[in-house]
């Protein structure tokens, strides 16, 4: 079965991409940058952070570029006053949700949220911040989870499930009380099934999961999932 192509417009530029490509990848292939956060190449799109939202001409709705496939004739808008406003809102809400103090964070200067705040000009947060005080779990021999810094992007859950294939990470509770849990909500050190592969720390966009006494700039590897998949599919 041959795969056809789709022609559409992104920010007024006509582009042609393979059928079924997401808006995000279609844009990327044509040098148009759309900010992302929960998205990670190689993992199932989650569509939760909303930073990659784009407008599509003719509908009042916004669409997550990471999870929306292209359609023939679609006119995508990736930059507008409204999108800028809303992307800033995403970052502000994430910063206000838990304890984010860059100056004392392991991920300082290696953090995707920090970087986005800078790029989008989020020079302050209009909401009162929450100062959470979840206990830090450092019971594992090398991996640490600090849920106060978690932005619930679920990259760790997805990489553990889809790439490492163990699925020891998941979510408990819902809404603002959502938390990443290990195994059946155990201490990390008590997990029998964690293979200690460290992929979760590699993909964590912030400083929520990290390797003890390792600079996060060294741990991080945004391309791990994509890379492993590409080797597997050879």
């Amino acid at each position: 079965m041959s795969i056809g192509t789709t022609t559409l417009k992104i920010d007024g530029i006509e582009v042609t991409v393979p059928e079924g490509t997401t808006i995000l990848n279609a844009a990327k292939a044509n040098g148009i940058n759309i900010p992302t956060l929960c998205y990670l190449e190689g993992l199932t799109p989650w569509g939760g952070c909303r930073i990659c939202m784009v407008e599509i001409h003719g509908t009042p709705k916004l669409f997550p570029a990471c999870a929306t496939p292209v359609n023939t004739g679609m006119e995508v808008i990736t930059q507008s006053e409204k999108l800028r406003e809303y992307r800033k809102m995403v970052v502000q809400l994430l910063l206000s949700e838990r304890t984010h103090v860059c100056s004392v964070c392991v991920a300082n200067n290696a953090c995707e949220l920090q970087k986005l705040a800078d790029e989008l000009g989020v020079d302050h947060v209009m909401f009162e911040r929450n100062w959470t005080s979840q206990e830090i779990d450092s019971t594992h021999k090398s991996l640490v989870i600090d849920r106060n810094r978690c932005i619930l992007c679920t990259r760790c859950i997805r990489v553990c499930d889809e790439i490492e294939g163990v699925h020891i990470l998941d979510l408990k509770n819902r809404g603002k009380d959502s938390q990443i849990i290990i195994d059946l909500d155990q201490k990390w050190g008590d997990s029998d099934y964690c293979t200690s592969c460290g992929k979760c720390a590699k993909v964590c966009p912030v400083g929520a999961i990290y390797v003890e006494s390792e600079a996060l700039s060294e741990t991080k590897d945004k391309h791990i999932a994509e890379f492993i998949l590409s080797r597997r599919n050879r």
Partner: peptide, 10 residues
Amino acid sequence: PNMEGKSKYG
């Protein structure tokens, strides 16, 4: 002043 890309937290 436009603060986009000027100064990061931390």
